[in-house]
Every structure is written in C-alpha cells, then in structure tokens.
Nucleic acid binder design. Structure first.
Length: 372
DNA sequence: AATGTTGGCGGGAGAGCATT
DNA sequence: AATGCTCTCCCGCCAACATT
C-alpha cells in the first residue's frame, strides 16, 4: 500500500539504513503496520489519526531505547515497562490527552494479528502490569547483519505527529506571517482570508473566519433604542462568539447585541436538530451562516422541502421557516468582507482570526508539545 | 446508503491493599 | 471480618468520519 506519507517513511529509513532500507521495510511487520496506520496523514483535519495504536508502539519503543536496549542485549530478561508509566506517557503526547488503555491491552495486538496472521507472537507482550515490545519485531536480519529499527520507529511517528499538526500550524503561522507584512500589501491578507471561505475548509476555521468578518461588518451599524422616544441610547451592533467551536455542541455560535440575534454556523442543510420540537414551541429565530456557495433562494427551497417531508402540516412548515431570520452563504460573506475592507477593517479582521484561532486550538500548548 | 474503522465513555469484575 | 478504594483488564456501546 502506497500513500502520501509512505515517502516520509522511506526517507527516514533511507537516512538510517542507506543500503538496505528497501529490504528492511519489506521484512518488517512493524514498519508495514506504521505505513498502514499513517494513511490519514493526507486526509482532512477531522480524520481520525489512529494515534492510540501508534502511541502504544511509541511509548514501549521509547522506553526500550531509554533503557539502552537498542544497542545492548538483555531486554527479554529485563523488567519491561510499567503500565502506569506507559499509560501516562501516551497521554502526554500530542492528541493523546484522552487515550484509554485499549491499545496497550488489546487493540494493537488484535489488529496486528488481523494484518499479519502469519506472525504468531504479538507486538506487545505482558505479564500483569509489566509490558514489553516484541523485540524480534525490532530486529531485522539482513545479509548476516542485525538492524535495529527502534529509533526509526520513533522518528516515523514523530514525523507523523508533525504532519498531523501541520494543517493548524500552517494556518496560524500564515496568519502571523501576514500580521508582519507591510501595510501596503493588504492584498495578500485579502487573498488569504478569501481562501478560507470555501466549502472544503475545516469547519472550525470557517466558523472563526465567518465570525471575524461578520463582527467587523456589523460594527459600523449603529442602533438607537430606549424606553421612551426622547431618551434614546446609541449603540453599535456587536457580535459575540459564545465559546469554543468544539465545546459548543448544539449551542449557539454567535450572539448580537443589542438586537439579540442568534447566529449558527453550519455545513449541512439538515436543520432538523435545531427545530426538533417545533410543533410544541415557538422557536427563537436564528440566522444561519452556511458553508455553501449555493444561492440563498436555493438554500431556502431546500430547507422548505425538507421541512415538508418532516412536517406535512403547512402551518408547522411555515413556523419552521419563520425561525430562519436570514441565510448567509459564502458569496454573501465575501461581499461583507469586501465592504469591511473598504472601511479599513482588514487588519482587525486578521487580528481577530489569530486571536480566535489561538483560543480555539490551544495554540501555545501545541507549540510546546511539538518538540517532545 | 450501507458498512467499516477509530476514539471515547462507562461499567463490571477481580486483585490488592488499607481502614474500620 | 467487613468494607471501601484504586488499579488493571475486558467488554459493549455510540458518535464521527472514511470507504465502498
């Protein structure tokens, strides 16, 4: 099996075993397994990373190297590694904070067995609380020489972690680069922000960029309100982001003061989840920001048809549609963005994107873990 | 549209240990 | 002796995404 990350694996092997790297790969079940498990390197940022099983190998091999067994004999007679230590270590690794015990206890071994039924000894050996990596899998004998691939394994998984982090890192570092460029080069900023407004962009990034644009679009509108007509308050329309995208399941994404409008960013047109109990309640009107380039009329029609399917009663469908205060698609966002640029907001929009991204993705944390 | 894969949650069971 | 706590191990369920 060949995929995008395979070339990274080959390069690392070539560097460590310049003359035999092809044969070593062919003879090593672990390397072939790593190749299979790193397939998601070229998928989108939401794709599962398979970190659990990779990290089970990682923490065991890391401990193996730490004890010097990649250059010394005696591993099989050693004490191996302590469960607790391995478990905690995998949780320290990037993306590993919530990993369970599955991989160490059972899932890696059973999956390995599935891929390589001929290999009768599993990769992880254990005797109550003590764990060993199957050392035979780390030593590849070729033309009377033993090659230990322990360090290569660590390098490959490290490289994989970097690749998986890159999508976000790249986004944030591009933002910061743009922050530093000359004021007369606003066009680069404009192009970058526009490139984030497309249907295949990560949903969280789309939400952040949408927020930055809408916030700066509305800020120039002033509202006059009061309890009697002689005494009016003057207030600018302000958009608030109500929390982290990820921690906001089912919640409302943005709220506008003082009008109290609710905004919900969504990729799909399946709004059922927002209107489930529409028959019982008069729902609060919501403005939908939709990650789609389809025309607003078409989006409306689609929602109407879906509503008809779910609620054959016309009065209910009508109520359903009344809940939709406004639909904002990608072309509208682009239009708002261009108007904000004319009013000189482009730099504040970029700064807002950086601020929200750092918050959303725990950027400082990612940066420190990257070098582990 | 149906099926497969992966990660995360939670619970049960049993062992070992400490406390009452 | 009874009770409770923590750790280890295993299992099933489910949501989210990928693959077919």
């Amino acid at each position: 099996m060949e995929h995008q990350f395979t070339s990274n694996i080959n390069e690392i092997l070539k560097k460590n075993f310049p003359h035999n790297y092809e044969d070593i790969f062919k003879d090593s079940y672990i390397l072939q397994y790593l190749n299979v498990k790193t397939k998601s390197a070229n998928s989108g940022s939401k794709a599962r990373g398979s970190f659990a099983n990779l990290y089970a190998i990682y923490v065991l091999v890391e401990d193996y190297i730490k004890q010097g067994f990649h250059v010394n004999d005696g591993y099989k007679k050693s004490n191996g590694s302590q469960f607790k230590h391995l478990f905690n270590r995998q949780r320290q690794l990037p993306f590993g904070a919530n990993l369970q015990n599955h991989a160490l206890n059972n899932r890696l071994n059973s999956e390995f067995q599935k891929y390589f039924p001929i290999q009768e000894t599993p990769p992880i050996l254990r005797v109550s609380e003590k764990y060993w990596i199957n050392e035979d899998l780390l030593k590849i004998t070729f033309s009377h020489t033993i090659f230990n691939i322990a360090e290569s394994i660590i390098e490959i998984i490290d490289q994989y972690i970097k690749t998986k982090s890159n999508a976000l890192d790249l986004f944030i570092s591009t933002c910061i680069d743009l922050q530093g460029i000359d004021a007369d080069n606003d066009n680069a900023v404009r192009l970058f922000v526009m490139s984030q407004l497309s249907p295949n962009v990560d949903a969280r990034l789309f939400e952040i960029v949408s927020y930055a644009i809408l916030k700066h679009y509305y800020i120039d509108t002033t509202i006059y309100w009061g309890y009697n007509s002689d005494n009016l308050n003057e207030e600018k329309l302000t958009l608030y982001k109500t929390g982290r995208t990820n921690a906001n399941d089912g919640g409302i994404d943005f709220v506008m003061k003082p009008l109290g409008r609710f905004f919900q960013v969504t990729e799909t047109l399946d709004f059922k989840k927002y209107f489930l109990d529409i028959e019982k309640l008069q729902k609060y009107p919501i403005t939908f920001v939709i990650k789609s380039e389809a025309e607003v009329d078409k989006l409306h029609a689609k929602i109407y048809d879906d509503a008809l399917k779910n609620y054959p009663v016309e009065a209910v469908v009508k109520k359903y549609m009344e809940c939709i205060e406004e639909l904002i698609n990608i072309p509208i966002l682009l239009d708002f963005f261009n108007k904000s640029i004319e009013l000189g907001h482009i730099r504040s929009i970029l700064n807002e994107i950086i601020l929200q991204s750092k918050f959303e993705f725990n950027y400082e944390e990612i940066a420190t873990l990257k070098d582990v």
